[in-house]
Design a binder for these strands. Structure first.
Lengths: 201, 201, 201, 201
DNA sequence: TATGAATGAGTCTTCATTCAT
DNA sequence: AATGAATGAAGACTCATTCAT
């Protein structure tokens, strides 16, 4: 993982979970019936229950897998900039985030959209993961401010704004669209630097 | 409306629609039962149906009211900057958007979150309204680029980013939170100028 | 009435009852909603209730009007054959029955079809009217048997068969169809004579 | 089937369908609630839905089973008269029809009564089956006219009258009534020959 | 391991009917 | 005489889940 944080391999979700994800994306958690999910997975209903305890457990598994993968990649991106300037760390993290929201657009969409459908424990776990990710951005901004590379009076707000911006990619990006992932990354790096108050071109 | 685009009066939604909005926010469209909505509205179920043809019609009414109010205020904010520099237009529009997403946080949240729950006609209408709003931002950016106030190679992407940023306010802002609306507006104006590549302080 | 038992004037049903009849025919009693009936009548729902106590009362009124008109015409047809041979009585009654089931096809259809939807009292009344009508046929047959014009070992069964035959006209006859009412009458007179065992052409 | 067209074994309907049939007979299709049907079948509501897709599908299954059985028996009765005079064919068909409307009185009643409650496709199928049956009678009559056994100027109308007569048995016959099925058959053969204009005793 | 059958509780929606105005 | 607003009960149907096989 240390070097390939830019690459997302095939979806690691098990077939039933991937099927569930598709249904969640199209209909939302409450609009998705166990029957529809089972059909999409090519399983009978009890067959699906053999793999997962409940519909809620399916949601938790999908969301946790997504958040783990996101954290893995952003952490690796951060680590890969070890020794670089804080700006390099910031840019790596943003790039990892942006790439994740394209490569795993459905996963990210469901994770951000279905918070209210999660049971308290699941939701708390999810929020913790999201906060950790956001703090990584914030830390990088603070470091860059310390070196004078960024001029940013409110690093926490800027981090949230950058994060929101990357998350929102998942709601409009379509593979095969007019812009390539590389172009989208490039442009969002510019936006993110603008939000963080980069002082140099 | 010409001068008071910054102010949002009391929620114009009828009591049943306001009640429905609250349930939609907490549980999502599919998670909201007509029974729950009726209870929240202090009506019997058929009493609710007396006012609205279907659950879907309730969603459409709520979303359309929200989008109309958003468009009214952003248009007025744009018009109020008539004669100003393009930057003034841009800032007015962004401020109107930000204020809307705080004053009508629930409305905006449901409108942006429940697109997949809308029937095709409703969704198409909604998308048209959203696109018009986004084009207002884009036009202002292009004008500011023409005057040299902004340096922005991709105005359409920047407009989407600015719009996404304002929309995302609705998902974390709480009245009575640590920041006042005025502070939030101020900070988001800075973020938005950063995204659009403002060349001057 | 004494002479014009062959003619059926305009439908004597009040407009709301006529509207209800149409809905009953198309959807059946249970499939007909008060709202649909009110709409068909051009009335509001309470407006309809102003004229009739309940949906059941509407059915009773429609059915009773139909049966009364049927009895009026068959009695008059019978009376008009006073002094004729029993065969003349028989034929007059059958003709009246056949003509009624064409002229008031919807009324007759509902009356015969919705017996199970009538409350006990209404149903009992209806059955009494139907039995009286059937006995008129039976009496005529018996009289014709006594004169040797008919050869019929079971007049009661024959009367029921003749009655059923006339009732069934209502379920296929359409005004403007290939056969004129006069032709249909003529042919059913032949069938009825066949059922009753007429011994002469 | 070749020899036993006179006998109707135990009702071939599955228990849930038989239960539904009973409820349809008593209350009509629209008056029959799925709850009542399920109770009559000794099932829960979803248990009933496990076996049948919808209330309409239940009606279609019941009606089609009835019409199939009717066609099977009348065809067999017709075939059994192979080589006989046309009058023999005619009598066999009528007897099969009459017996069917006694042995399967509820099935026949619902099939003829609930045409308006069938969805278009189901209704079309039903009408086709009914027409085929009626044409069998018509053909037999025409053949008997050709041999001079019947004198009947309008075979199509006579066939419809004979058919209606047999169908109407289902609306008054009760097992254990004053007349045995054999007696009823005998009398209806006489009526049918009368309608068709039989020239010989 | 996998599934046909089952279910209590819930879904959205409509029912016939009433009443204040 | 007419209606907008309301409702308890019921409509057909589906839910997530279980269990015997």
């Amino acid at each position: 993982m240390s070097n390939d944080w830019r690459d997302f391999g095939p979806d690691p979700l098990s077939p039933p979970l991937r099927a569930a994800l598709g249904v969640f994306v199209r209909h939302g958690y409450h609009g998705a019936s166990i029957r529809t999910i089972a059909e999409a997975a090519g399983l009978s209903v009890p067959g699906l229950y053999h793999h997962h305890r409940s519909k809620q457990a399916i949601l938790a598994a999908v969301v946790d897998a997504a958040m783990q993968e996101m954290l893995d990649h952003t952490r690796a991106a951060d680590a890969a900039a070890e020794g670089d300037s804080p700006v390099g760390r910031f840019e790596n993290i943003v790039e990892a985030l942006a790439r994740f929201h394209m490569a795993r657009r459905d996963h990210a969409f469901v994770a951000s959209t279905e918070m209210r459908s999660m049971e308290p424990a699941t939701r708390a776990h999810h929020v913790r993961q999201r906060d950790e990710q956001q703090r990584m951005i914030e830390d990088a901004i603070r470091a860059a401010v310390a070196t004078g590379d960024f001029s940013c009076p409110h690093p926490e707000d800027a981090a949230r704004a950058v994060s929101s911006l990357c998350v929102s990619i998942a709601s409009w990006y379509r593979p095969g669209g007019p812009l390539s992932p590389d172009e989208i990354v490039e442009r969002h790096l510019v936006f993110a630097r603008g939000i963080a108050g980069a002082t140099t071109a």
